[in-house]
Design a protein around this nucleic acid. Structure first.
Lengths: 237, 237
DNA sequence: AAGCCATAAATTGTCGACAATATAAAAATA
DNA sequence: TATTTTTATATTGTCGACAATTTATGGCTT
């Protein structure tokens, strides 16, 4: 279970399964970014009909993981620097809002749960060592709970259902690990305090900063990643 | 052409046409809010197969006009007061962002065009008389141009493709007309000035206020609408 | 040899039919 | 009569095949 919290919808139908499987493969890079998707090929690979596969593709499109053009086909989204900036600008605005609303709408026990989560991760040795998986999961969980705490169903859907997998895709494929862990914890703590004090304005500001810092961190990785790519291309030619 | 500016995608395929048609009918209320959608019935009505209709339904779902449940079916979204608040909270955050970005990224000629648009509408007699259609179209056009001016493709998609039809649906079905027209123009003017001065912070704030005022206006209509509904229900029983 | 046009192959869009699930109606039980 | 169980109906999910469009191939002209 790599992303237990984001699978709110139980998998009942066949296209559900294909959707979830493809989503994971795209986010993790098994299906390469920017690559064209052949309906017949993928349908055969997942052992379903084209109709079922297309249903899954539609849903992947609505969470921005593939792009579709009429009569031409489907392509996995390309991870560009421009798009990273664009998505994080949107994320910052939306999660800022979520955090402000959470300061008003979170129940005391939810806030307590959030504090416990933070302590839990602080005390976990693995986090101190900056291990990637737990950091990722913990961070996601933290953000996820605050978003839910906004009690705004539309916002929750927008962030958790539509946008988060794309963000995850950047994080996973850029290999986000390490040095920001401790800093992120301090930032998380400050955000929780603001929420607990029902200071929505401060909570919003802190969350926006937190996300900006995260963006800057990814951007660095991305630039490195791109120069590696450039070198590889140069060697290949 | 009720919404010439929001049909960025040319209608090539059959499901495109069904999507656009159904979207209009849902927004205008010909297909009632909250009503269940029967695939066989609608497919027959539009003269297409169920597969084609389902393609359209998927796209309607991704712009929040219908809701789908596995093995149960599709329902037109219900216009509740809660959802109105939720959607406008999101809209405010996103268009606020768009406006801030526009202050940095709009070209001088785009700003000029925006000013001309405003003058044009001020001088149009119909607007002064508070006629509904032009007010709606003009307001939409204004917001649309600023969003585009942000130059953030993801944000543009989110607002113009995913969210705007739902907002329009509230406005249309609440019968938004009249008294806010002149006030809205002053607000629009102030926003343009802020953008022209590259004052993103102010532009964002003004846009958020403008949208809040719009929300309050709709909310009033909505409360009235709901009490009418309640009386009707009471009489019917 | 380069570019253009016609043809062939492959891919996407659309259809009608069948299977699985959910809803409605009828029968049975308490 | 009210409630549960069973049966029947209707709706959604899935499939394979055909039509329309795009892309690739091969031949022709300059």
């Amino acid at each position: 279970m790599t992303q237990p919290l984001l699978n709110e919808t139980s998998i009942t139908t066949a296209s559900d399964k294909v959707f979830v499987d493809m989503r994971r493969e795209i986010v993790e890079g098994s299906i390469a970014q920017g690559s064209k998707i052949s309906e017949p090929e993928l349908a055969k690979r997942y052992g379903v009909s084209r109709a079922t596969l297309r249903e899954a593709l539609n849903r992947l499109e609505s969470c921005y993981l593939v792009e579709r053009k009429a009569n031409i086909g489907c392509r996995v989204v390309a991870l560009t620097a421009e798009r990273l900036i664009e998505v994080y600008q949107v994320r910052s605005a939306l999660e800022g809002l979520a955090c402000r609303l959470a300061a008003d709408n979170m129940e005391p026990d939810e806030v307590q749960g959030l504090k416990q989560l933070l302590n839990q991760h602080l005390q976990t040795q693995r986090v101190k060592e900056g291990e990637s998986y737990y950091q990722e999961a913990g961070d996601l969980d933290f953000h996820y709970r605050i978003i839910k705490g906004s009690k705004n169903a539309h916002l929750i859907h927008l962030l958790c259902h539509d946008l988060y997998q794309l963000i995850r895709m950047y994080r996973v494929q850029m290999g986000m690990v390490g040095p920001r862990v401790s800093k992120a914890f301090d930032e998380h703590l400050a955000i929780i305090n603001a929420i607990e004090n029902h200071d929505g304005e401060l909570a919003e500001m802190l969350m926006k900063r937190h996300i900006s810092a995260s963006q800057a961190n990814i951007q660095t990785k991305f630039d490195r990643y791109q120069s590696v790519q450039a070198v590889q291309n140069h060697v290949a030619n």
